[in-house]
Simulated assay, not measured.
Amino acid sequence: MSEPNTIPAAVAQAMRDELPSVAGHTVAEIIVEVPSYADAFSGRMGQKIGGAVELALGGFLELATASTGADPSTPIRPALAAAYELGRGEARDGRSMDALQAAYRVGARVSWREMSATAVRAGLSAEQLARFAELVFAFIDQLSAASVAGHADELATTGRVRQRYLERLATLLLTGAPAEQLLAAAERADWAPPRTLTAVLLPEARVRGAMVSLDPRTLRTTDDVQDPAGEGELMVLLVPDAEGRSRPALLRSLDGRCAVVGPARPWTEAQGSYARVSRAVQLGLAPEGSAPLDTETRLTELVLRGDEAALADLRSRALAPLAELGDSAREKLIETLRSWLLHQGRRDAVAAELFVHPQTVRYRMGQLRELYGARLEDPRAVLELVLALGVQPEGTGA
């Protein structure tokens, strides 16, 4: 006599004899009701999946006929392992679990319909049939849960691996690796190269919010950059195709995020954009208000402050003729000379800028010509003066 919670051996054997037929019908109905599997189940693949279904059902029948003292997980362990791998395969093929879950529902219905009919013909009692139904659907739930776990694990694994590849690509870009190496790294990371990349430097705490509105291909580095102001770590983003008309949109999206934005460069030359934002941060250039610091609008400062010591020497030499004057006189002449150079000698424009009478400008320029002599007509000397007066050193009042 069989246990009340198990299927009699004779009934189980009858159902086991029907397994190839049940597996075939299951695959056929899945193809009809889950169209996304139509191609996957065709030909040899369909035979392979049919065999897997038959194996799973065979494991289920072993479970259904096992005595209460047996380990209930033993008969279905291979089926659960196969379901787990099936879920991983779905993730690798880029499919969600929706289709597979639908296939499980179809499989449960077909298996129950056909196997229960065979069981009834073989003499299964109503009580045992009810127990059989519970086992069928509990078994399908276990298979489904195993596939979900496999799908999630594969996504997590492939996601981590791809993220490492993307981070490696970002590092290579910032260090100026050869184009061939960059192309290989981009292919390995499954990353479609853009036309250009723009480096953006911003506080680590602002990165997540910024990424929401940026191109999905945006790369980020894992190596933090120390903020010279001592306000925490900075991170580098490499934003694709943010040049031309797209640049204003990038700047707007970074409003309020304390960002420094470099120039757009061909993607294999992104190191140049990164060097620009790094230099801006090192020099202490700061944005105005909440807008990001656009290095394209601060090129003069970047050029002039490229070598602070050299600029100081140049300034000292260029302004040497004024060294013997008093502070007030020197300040007024420097102010006038700067305006005269910027306005290319247009006296009225200089007077308007300085809020003085044109005759005052004429008088001051006369003093300057006496001090500088022919040097105010020498292009090289004029260039040195333009550079020397382009940045106002702290404490000079000039």
Rank of each mutant, 00 (worst) to 15 (best):
Q13D: 15
A52D: 04
P228Y: 06
S73I: 04
L201S: 14
D327F: 03
N5S: 13
Q128T: 02
A156Q: 01
L371K: 11
K332E: 08
L337W: 09
T26Q: 00
A320E: 15
L341K: 04
G256Q: 02
P35K: 10
P228S: 09
S290G: 07
A79G: 13
D223N: 09
V11Q: 07
A156C: 00
R346S: 01
Q271I: 11
V22K: 04
L325D: 04
A275C: 02
G94N: 06
A99E: 15
L341I: 05
A310R: 11
E29D: 11
Q392A: 07
A66R: 11
G176D: 10
Q392P: 00
V281G: 00
P228A: 05
G123M: 03
V277E: 14
L333Q: 09
R164N: 04
L251Y: 11
Q142P: 02
L183S: 14
D327G: 06
E324W: 01
A270N: 09
P8A: 06
S42H: 11
G284I: 14
A210S: 05
V106F: 05
A91T: 05
A185T: 06
V207K: 02
G123C: 08
G51L: 11
E308Q: 15
E167T: 13
G69R: 14
R315Y: 01
S290A: 14
E3P: 00
L341C: 13
E134F: 13
D241S: 08
M115N: 00
D17M: 08
R168L: 03
N5G: 08
A56V: 01
K48W: 04
R160L: 04
R208G: 03
L368A: 09
G59E: 08
A156T: 02
G176Q: 08
L293I: 08
A351T: 02
A14C: 03
R16M: 12
E308A: 15
A352T: 07
R92Q: 09
T221D: 14
R188A: 13
Q163C: 03
L57S: 02
R95E: 12
S253D: 01
A280N: 05
L124S: 05
Q163F: 02
V136W: 08
L293Y: 05
L237Y: 03
A152L: 07
L371I: 12
A280I: 11
E370N: 04
R247Y: 09
I30S: 01
E127P: 00
V27Y: 06
S273M: 10
T222R: 15
G272C: 05
D215S: 11
D71H: 05
E18P: 00
P287S: 11
